[in-house]
Design a protein around this nucleic acid. Structure first.
Lengths: 339, 339
DNA sequence: TTGTAGGCGTTATCAG
DNA sequence: CTGATAACGCCTACAA
C-alpha cells in the first residue's frame, strides 16, 4: 500500500537503480537527477521499507542488547551510553531481558542469527558456551560489557582494583576491622564466587591484616540483601567498623539498616559502595564510581567498529574506577591504631 | 552461507512449499513427510532467516517501545510487564529511548513504518500530532500506556483517583494542612500542569478545606527536586503537616531531606508517595501503589490483540491504584481539630 | 551518468 | 496433500 521504489522511479521518470543510488547517497548521480528523485520522494511521501532493505543487503541495522533487568539503574545508564554511541547511526536497539537462568539459555540460544541482528551487546551475564561456539561459526559480532571473556571483545572494569580502592580508603581512615558484603560474579551461578573477594583479600594482606572469613559475606543483590548481611556482621564477636559493599543497592541497604538499628553512619559504622548513581549522590554515599555510561558507549563503539571492519582480534579493555568521597565513610570511633 | 529453505527441501527430497508448511505448523502435511523435513532441518542445523520472513510475510514480529529513560525504575517494571506478555510469542522488543524534546520529535517521526515493526507501545510521553495522523493513515497499531489520548488505545491509571486516595488518607489521619509536590503531566511541556492537581484540589474542597496556592508546588522529577520543594514548603508562614508527592522519587527526596533537616517522619511531617518499588518498600514509604507491571502487560496484550484483529475501536482503560500504608504518614503532632 | 536484469529467502497461490 | 512459480522491495552488478 505505501509507495515503493518503483512508484518513485516512475514519478521521477528515472530507473529504480537511480532512485536507489540517490537514497543511498551514491555520488555518481547528476545533481539535476537527484533533485528530480528527491522531489518525487517528497511528493509521494516515500520511505524505503526497512524489511526489504534488511533482506536485500543482508544487514538489519539492528543491534541486540542482552541484559539482566535486576541490574536496575545500572541498566538505565547502559542504555544511555548505548544510545549515545548509536546516535547519528542507522542502528536501532533490540532489547532482550534476562531474569532467570532459563531466560539466559533461551536468549543466548536464539540470538545471533545473522539476519535477525547485526551484532549483540552482552551485559553482565556470562554467555553460554554454545553461544560462544556459534558466534565463532557464524561470524556474528558480540561484545561483552561489564563482563569479561578472553575469547570475545570485552569492555569492563577491574573489580580487583575497585575493591582495592574501597579497602584502601577504609584503611587510610584508620579502619582495621573491615568487612566485605559481596555479590556473585555470575548472578546465575551460586558457585561463582564474589566479585570483590580477591581485591579485598589482597589489599588487606598487603596491609598486613589477616581477615576472618566471618567478615566476608555474599549477599543478595538488593537493599534487603545488604541489610541482612549487616545483621550477620553485627552479630560476630568483634563487629567490623567499616563495610565495603559489592554494589550500590547493597550499600544503600546497609546504610539504611544501620540507621534504623541506631548506628550512626559514619560515626559508628563506615560504608563504601560500589557504583554510583544520582540516588547515591543524593544520599551522600561514599562509593567507587564506575563509568557505566562511558563503558556502554565504548562497548557499542567496539561493536560498531567490528561491524565496519570484520576481522579484528577480540580485545579486553578495562575502564578506570574512581573513589568518590562523600559522607558514609570516616574514621572509626576509637581509632585503634594497631601496629 | 547458512543453509536456506532450498537446501532443506533438497536434503529432504521435497519442495520448498512443503518445508515452509512444516515450518509454519500448517496441518495439511502428511506426518511422514513432516518427519523427513524435520530430520533434514535437524541435520543441516537450518534456521529460517528472520529478515527474509519479515520481508515475505510483511510482518516483522517486532514491537517498538517508546520510553523516556528518566522514568527510572518505572521503566524497568514496564519492561517486565511487556516481556511477560511477550513470552511464548514470536514477538521481540525494539526500544527507543526519549530523553529530550528533540528525541521525542525524532523518534515519533520515524517510528511507525509498517515494515520496521508491527506496532508500538508508547510509554508516558504524549505522542506528537503528526504521529497520531500517520498512525491513522498507515493503519499502524499504537497503544499508549501511562498516558491517555482518546484517539488511541490507552492503558493508564487515574491520577485524580490516586491523588484523592493520598489526600483522603492524610485527612483521615487528622491532617488539615496538606501540601502537594507535583510533577508535570507532559515532561516536555512546562505548561502542561501537574498530574495530581485536580484530584488534590477536589478532595480538599470536598472536605471543606480551602487550599493555599503556596501549598501546590510543581517540582523536578527527582529526589533533589522533592527536597527543593520541601524547603520551599517549610518556608511558608504556616508549613504543611503532610505532603502528597506526585512520584516516588520526589517522595523519597522529601523524606530524606526532612530527616536531614531534623524533622522526624512521620511525627513532625507526613509524606505520601505515588508509585511503589522495592526501594520504597524497603524504606517504608507510605504510597499510592500503581500496578505498573500489570499495566504494561495489559497494554501489550491490547496491542497483540489489535494486531490479531485489526479493526477494534480505540479504548481507554484505567487500572485501579491502591494506598499502601507504611511508615511515612501518621497523625500530625498536634492534631488541630478545626471547628 | 543511467537503465535493466538478477538475486536475496520466504510465503502464498495454484494447479495437480 | 504436494510441487512449481510468482510475488515481496531493495540493492548491485553489468551494460549502455
Amino acid at each position: 500500500m505505501p509507495p515503493t521504489i518503483n512508484d518513485v522511479a516512475r514519478e521521477a521518470g528515472v530507473g529504480i537503480g537511480t532512485v536507489s543510488r540517490v537514497l543511498n547517497g551514491n555520488p555518481l548521480v547528476k545533481a539535476a537527477t537527484r533533485q528530480k528523485v528527491l522531489a518525487a520522494v517528497e511528493r509521494l511521501g516515500y520511505r524505503p521499507s526497512p524489511a526489504a532493505r534488511a533482506f536485500g543487503r543482508r544487514r538489519t541495522h539492528i543491534l541486540e542488547l542482552l541484559v539482566p533487568l535486576f541490574a536496575g539503574g545500572f541498566f538505565l545508564e547502559i542504555l544511555r551510553g548505548v544510545e549515545a554511541a548509536l546516535a547519528n547511526t542507522p542502528y536501532t536497539l533490540l532489547v532482550r531481558t534476562i531474569e532467570s537462568a532459563d531466560d539466559r539459555t533461551r536468549v543466548f540460544g536464539d540470538c545471533c542469527r545473522r539476519t535477525s541482528s547485526d551484532g549483540v551487546l552482552v551485559v553482565w551475564v556470562p554467555p553460554t558456551e554454545q553461544f560462544i561456539q556459534r558466534v565463532a561459526d557464524e561470524g556474528f559480532v558480540p561484545v561483552l560489557m561489564n563482563a569479561v571473556d578472553r575469547r570475545l571483545p570485552s569492555v569492563a572494569v577491574n573489580h580487583d582494583v575497585a575493591a582495592e580502592q574501597a579497602v584502601s580508603y577504609c584503611l587510610a581512615n584508620g579502619h582495621r576491622r573491615i568487612a566485605l558484603v559481596d555479590r556473585l560474579e555470575d548472578p546465575f551461578d551460586p558457585a561463582s564466587g564474589g566479585i570483590c573477594e580477591r581485591g579485598y583479600a589482597e589489599t588487606l594482606a598487603a596491609a598486613g591484616l589477616s581477615t576472618s572469613p566471618e567478615y566476608r559475606r555474599l549477599a543478595d543483590f538488593s537493599a534487603p540483601g545488604g541489610a541482612a548481611a549487616l545483621d550477620a556482621l553485627l552479630a560476630v564477636p568483634e563487629p567490623p567498623t567499616a563495610i565495603v559493599a559489592g554494589s550500590e543497592v547493597q550499600a544503600l541497604g546497609i546504610v539504611e539498616a544501620a540507621r534504623v538499628r541506631g548506628w550512626r553512619v559514619p560515626a559508628d559504622l563506615s560504608i563504601v559502595g560500589y557504583n554510583d548513581s544520582e540516588l547515591a549522590q543524593f544520599l551522600g554515599l561514599t562509593t567507587v564510581q564506575v563509568p557505566v555510561r562511558e563503558m556502554a558507549r565504548q562497548a557499542t563503539q567496539v561493536l560498531l567498529n567490528a561491524l565496519a571492519q570484520p576481522d579484528s582480534e577480540p580485545k579486553v579493555s578495562y575502564l578506570p574506577t574512581e573513589l568518590v568521597v562523600r559522607q558514609t565513610c570516616g574514621p572509626p570511633r576509637t581509632a585503634e591504631v594497631k601496629r
